[in-house]
Nucleic acid binder design. Sequence first.
DNA 1: TGGTCAAGCGGAGAACTCTCCGCATAAGTA
DNA 2: TACTTATGCGGAGAGTTCTCCGCTTGACCA
Lengths: 183, 183
Amino acid sequence: MSAQEERAPRKDARINRDRILETARELIEKEPDISLNAIAKAAGVGPGTLYRHFPNREALVLALYQHEIDNLVGLASSLLLRNPPLEAMRLWMERLAKYGRMKRGVANLLHAAITNDIHNSSYSQMVGAIEALLGAVHADASITGADLLLLLGFLWRLPPGPDGKARGERLLAFTLDGLASQA
Amino acid sequence: MSAQEERAPRKDARINRDRILETARELIEKEPDISLNAIAKAAGVGPGTLYRHFPNREALVLALYQHEIDNLVGLASSLLLRNPPLEAMRLWMERLAKYGRMKRGVANLLHAAITNDIHNSSYSQMVGAIEALLGAVHADASITGADLLLLLGFLWRLPPGPDGKARGERLLAFTLDGLASQA
DNA sequence: TGGTCAAGCGGAGAACTCTCCGCATAAGTA
DNA sequence: TACTTATGCGGAGAGTTCTCCGCTTGACCA
């Protein structure tokens, strides 16, 4: 039972958090490898404050891209409304691939979300979206949503450039064929 | 043309390299996250020396496991001699999975070899082994050896424990089904 | 409005990775 | 053997990640 009452955060804490995020967005855009200390300084807070809000670089980047993850998650259900299941799956994966290619940030953050902290909410959202797609394709899949997300990890480890794109497309086609043949 | 004569390394350099490797093998066994400085100190060399021989942690771990990579590469051809292609492929992948599970080192190092340095010899050896297996399964595969190695990356990103093992087995079966249905 | 106290802050500092460069020395040369 | 030189060595130190803890302050209550 014991529903632990999470007291709302203090206002200054919220302000600091927002300032850090805003500053980080600008600085990381310019220079992806900028140090967290430098971000803290630019945001006008101490390093301790930054690290309290975001325990490591990945957590910070994750927060930066939370919005885009939300989009991706929402996309799954809307694709399912308008398309046959396999087609929805294909379209969704292509969008995922696009994120993986464009923003290496999304890439690493998803990997981090997957590996570091299994109770991470972004991770469960993503798994949920995939489960929905997978369930539409066939009710009793041999692999789970989490399995598939892990498998799709290749999308954010592709080398940059047209070569990487081609490899991503081949592997995606391979994966979809596998899913289709199970249906 | 210009075949640049690589002069043989100095004897003391070779000795130091070996001492570092030997020390690293012992220390990393006990404590995987031990600092490179600590390894250098234990090996009786300065940090600079360690970093000259191995530019970063991954390069060092890669050197430690070079022997096991050689084994894996050799295994591919001997499996092909004794088994039908698909079975050889299956057995080889299972061995790969075992390495991935047992030694997280092999894991990360392979990832590093794949992503960082495309001209890395361990990487090309592995791709070669996979090409051989793939070629035996079907002459005109839609995916390349490098593609498949990238796909198999899930093997060294599995969570530890029985849960991870089960997931690995499911994904491996999925992958093999896909390869088989292309044959 | 003043008092209480937990939430939150900042920065000193520990530990680490990796680089740079002056010095030592192994390996060729005469 | 004595000389030369470029290969390799070591460690100081710059830059980074992340932690710890004493101090500050916002939020709630009387």
